[in-house]
């Protein structure tokens, strides 16, 4: 409480002042606006931002899990890298464990391989060999070489899924390649 220094006031003036004070000012017509505490606003905004981020992350995660994001890496491998046997990027597509990416992903990736034969590192060596074998066959050695290839895989052949490879080879070596 502030203690005011004593200021003398004339008695008549003091009475007049008290008289004026008897005129009570009217009540203020408006209410003081309620103020939200700042922390409440901050908490509300943080919560909304967290919610939005959560929804976004879960949407991206779902998209990834459904395999709708194309994995283009295998098709972008250059011919040179694809031919080196020990390079991790030359792991044949067929040797991937299905459980790693799921069946849906494999199906999706196979579609890429089938539609882009020029860049395909699985079929390219076979097709190249097919060309060589074709020329040999025309010169009378075809059946022998073919059998030899399937029995003793070289460094460029793939150890797993031999049955599939065999079938592919047969198809490639067939005379009517275009109809396939």
């Amino acid at each position: 409480m502030m203690i005011e220094p004593k200021f003398p006031m004339d008695e008549g003036l003091d009475r007049f002042e008290q008289d004026l004070k008897s005129l009570t000012p009217k009540r203020f017509p408006k209410e003081l606006p309620a103020r939200d505490p700042n922390w409440l606003k901050i908490a509300l905004i943080s919560w909304l931002m967290g919610l939005a981020a959560g929804v976004l992350v879960s949407a991206i995660w779902t998209k990834l899990m459904n395999g709708e994001v194309p994995i283009a890496a295998p098709n972008q491998v250059t011919q040179k890298v694809a031919l080196s046997p020990n390079s991790p990027t030359t792991t044949p597509f067929g040797s991937l464990q299905p459980g790693v990416f799921g069946d849906g992903l494999l199906v999706g990736s196979s579609r890429f391989i089938a539609t882009d034969l020029d860049d395909d590192y699985v079929l390219q060596p076979l097709m190249r060999r097919n060309t060589v074998n074709g020329s040999r066959r025309f010169s009378g050695e075809a059946s022998h070489t073919s059998r030899e290839d399937s029995a003793t895989p070289n460094a460029n052949s793939f150890p797993k899924y031999q049955g599939q490879r065999q079938l592919l080879k047969m198809l490639m070596e067939s005379d009517d390649l275009i109809s396939i």
Binding site: Q18, D19, L23, T24, P25, K26, R27
Partner: peptide, 10 residues
């Protein structure tokens, strides 16, 4: 508009 009472005490 500003005061409740029309007159002062005096």
């Amino acid at each position: 508009e500003y005061w409740l009472e029309p007159k002062t005490r005096n």
